[in-house]
Design a protein around this nucleic acid. Structure first.
Lengths: 150, 150
DNA sequence: TATTGTTATACTCTATAACTATA
DNA sequence: TATAGTTATAGAGTATAACAATA
């Protein structure tokens, strides 16, 4: 027993993380969806097809998200020369500044959720969370890849 | 090091949980928001003000969510005799059937995300997740309270 | 013909402000 | 006056289907 509650506890955990994450995003004047998009572009430009896969969004939804984020001056569409259908998305200087600040803030403050754990439990939990993210193939900005530990 | 990635790993973890949870909800023809609402009513009726707090929603948003869920025949509004302003929400028989099936499915299938962990790591992780949910004061349906362990 | 992306449409979710009814 | 809910309005997010341009 405790088996029974594991699924519910995972949902609760996700709810807590999302709420805190949304608060931090709002302080940077970002929605979580826009923050996710910017995080994927933190280290390199990416094509819309790749972003669609990384963000788990259908194409039309991504188009709209990019429109709104572009309107705020945070990302830029470019057409690569080798395929005139394609679109490459990158951060503008303002977008880069914004996402760097957001990422630093999330890194600093989100783990406060784990404050009541003992140091050992906490490190254990963080390690396993990173393992799960990496095992699921999430990109580095979501804790996957994990170049420092693998 | 690894410090740095902890926040990102938590976000990635939440994203993974949400995606899987949304898939399971969809199989039961529920949105995640409607599923959350039903889960809060799984064991007892509740007033709208309490639901507003539990779900982290402003009143007008909750009103709309209740409208849509009511239209699907899953919940019912009642006016308690002692305060004619108030509204008490409960599941309909169909809503109860739906949420019981959903909850069982979530309990069974959501922890698949932890399949690649060793049994010890997995139990450890589940225990800590439940601790975090409980420490945050989440209701039982989200892994809080945790009557079996506390 | 297959692929990339956008547009059209619709619905859900959520917030703020204004309103109604009751306490 | 304060509280419980609703209505009005607006914008974000996301899905499906139909479309355009390019490969």
């Amino acid at each position: 027993m405790q088996e029974q509650g594991a699924g519910a506890a995972l949902v609760g955990l996700a709810v807590l993380i999302q709420r805190r994450y949304a608060e931090i995003c709002a302080e940077h004047d970002l929605t979580p969806a826009q923050a996710h998009l910017l995080c994927m572009l933190m280290d390199q430009p990416r094509g819309l097809t790749e972003l669609s896969r990384l963000l788990g969004l259908a194409r039309p939804g991504l188009s709209g998200l990019v429109d709104r984020t572009e309107r705020r001056g945070l990302v830029r569409r470019d057409n690569p020369a080798h395929d005139r259908r394609a679109v490459t998305l990158s951060t503008t200087p303002q977008g880069k500044k914004t996402v760097d600040a957001l990422y630093a803030d999330v890194s600093t403050r989100l783990p406060d959720l784990l404050d009541h754990l003992s140091p050992a439990e906490r490190r254990n939990f963080e390690t396993i969370a990173a393992d799960i993210a990496a095992a699921a193939g999430l990109p580095e900005a979501f804790g996957g890849s994990c170049p420092r530990r693998c």
